[in-house]
Design a protein around this nucleic acid. Structure first.
Lengths: 290, 290
DNA sequence: AGAACCGTGCAACAAATGTTTCATGGCCGT
DNA sequence: ACGGCCATGAAACATTTGTTGCACGGTTCT
């Protein structure tokens, strides 16, 4: 067997396992069972926990074809690396042409988005909602495609807190609003890569003003997340297609509004009922047929 | 300074970032953006890639309250550990009363929405996209909360068909646009119960004008779906919460735009590239760091 | 302008890392 | 039973790690 297809280092390990000396098998099983620790902690550390000799790890690595433990660990590290950001060309290419190609694209897209939703941190949203609940005023920002999410959030929050919520720039140039941020107020900024300069400016202004900054973004490294008190993450690029997905951001916005409403208690409920009554009186909606 | 619970090392870093020296900010951003490498590779390695001094990493760690880089990395490692059953016994259990109810609400909501997405009919979307592709002009309508979805759809479609897409009422009263519908054009109406009268009027106008009517709604019985050539269904009320969910509608809109773009072929791709180039030239976006 | 301060890169430090060597002990084959 | 072989643990090795002291350059305050 000269060169076999390099599968995962873990499977290489498992395959070679039975033909190894007793002690090396033991160590090998430990590595397979604790591969996360194997990539992060030191050899001696692992040896202590596994109750084995440090040298055994080096020998194990060599026994399955690596130059040493360092190389094995590097392979494990690469195998574990999250979000291999390369299926861009790969996945897009192997979609076939034909009448079903579009349907397949949509199905993939929907499934990917559905898979992304449960990965959103509910805990973080709940904390941010509490901050919103306590805020004297709420500013919302989102540019370009994120504007749609910003407007939905604005809409839903205004249903029960009409005079305390507004979109930045809704009543004039953004710059005017940036100077109006105050401590005790909350500023929500929505954005993903590539980030607009305007959204970063809003985030910075909020931070400088001492307002509570809530960022809804695709990465903790997003520039508008710097200094943010709460960062709500969604997966924008997880789904195939020519444009990042906003499904996650929208789900976050809706949850945020729902929990904030919940925290509002009876007062919020009453405001919502008032709003609904007003809309009904203006016959905005099609009357339900009896 | 606001008192905040030590949630994640990344958020601590993020919060402290703006108040840090320039060089440390740079390093901190690098760590936030490459936190996986931060946990696996060595300080000197990271320094080389970030183009910074190794000592900066130690200083960064100390600046945000850790005893050194080792401790920061250990914290990052723990935060990243898969299957976080018990990172540290203390904090997760502390929240027994308040937020737990909210967290449960959010989790339920997200799961319900995730479950709803795969039930969307990809076939129907593909057919509607074909209709959009062939339309000489595309009108989009959505009122109240659905306005956000309408705007996203408008935004994405205009990326590659700028002069053929517009929101009804974007350049004057809706009534004016209603008279402009023509055969060969497509009208998209988004809505769910309770249905606004305005959206029904648009749908009826489209139908009478002989335009292709595409309804994105929560029911085939929706009044704006009457006479529609394509009805794309989503589940608005499937998730708990005080307000119906728009996640499904947004997912439909995004898929619709994606497939329409796909059908547009090379021409659409070129338009999109032109648009992106123009945005880059206007320095709308934060330039990627080198 | 002077002085104090701070941020920053460089280089040397001690500690910890992965590796190797060596001695020991058990195992199998002739 | 003897000799060769190999697995195994402990200790010594060179290297790399994270850290710290120091000097330089810039800014700010008096």
């Amino acid at each position: 067997m000269a060169v076999s297809a390099k599968s995962s280092p873990l499977s290489e390990l498992r395959i070679a396992l039975p033909s190894l000396p007793l002690r090396l098998q033991e160590v090998g099983r430990f590595v397979a069972a604790n591969d996360y620790d194997a990539t992060t902690r030191s050899m001696r550390d692992l040896a202590a926990e596994a109750g084995a000799d440090p040298a055994a790890f080096t020998r194990l690595a060599k026994a399955i074809g690596y130059s040493g433990w360092d190389e094995l660990r590097a392979a494990l590290t690469e195998a574990r690396r999250p979000s291999q950001t390369s299926p861009f060309s790969g996945r897009a290419k192997n979609r076939r042409h034909g009448p079903n190609a579009d349907v397949a694209l949509i199905t993939d897209k929907l499934e990917a988005e559905a898979a992304g939703l449960p990965r959103i941190s509910a805990q973080t949203i709940a904390e941010a909602a509490r901050a919103l609940h306590e805020a004297k005023r709420i500013w919302i920002t989102g540019y370009r495609s994120c504007r749609s999410v910003a407007e939905l959030l604005n809409y839903e929050l205004r249903l029960f807190r009409p005079e305390q919520v507004q979109i930045v720039g809704s009543s004039g140039p953004d710059d005017l609003d940036l100077g109006a941020f105050r401590p005790g107020e909350a500023v929500i900024v929505i954005g993903f890569m590539p980030y607009t300069n305007a959204s970063v400016r809003v985030a910075q202004a909020a931070y400088r003003a001492g307002a509570t900054l809530i960022a809804i973004a695709d990465s903790v490294a997003a520039p508008m997340a710097e200094g943010a008190d709460h960062v709500l993450l969604f997966e924008a690029a997880s789904s195939p297609g020519f444009f990042p997905s906003l499904t996650g951001a929208l789900a976050i916005a809706q949850s945020l509004a729902a929990v904030t409403f919940s925290l509002g208690g009876a007062a919020a409920k009453k405001r919502l009922q008032d709003t609904e009554a007003r809309l009904a009186a203006a016959s905005t909606y099609v009357s339900e047929k009896g």
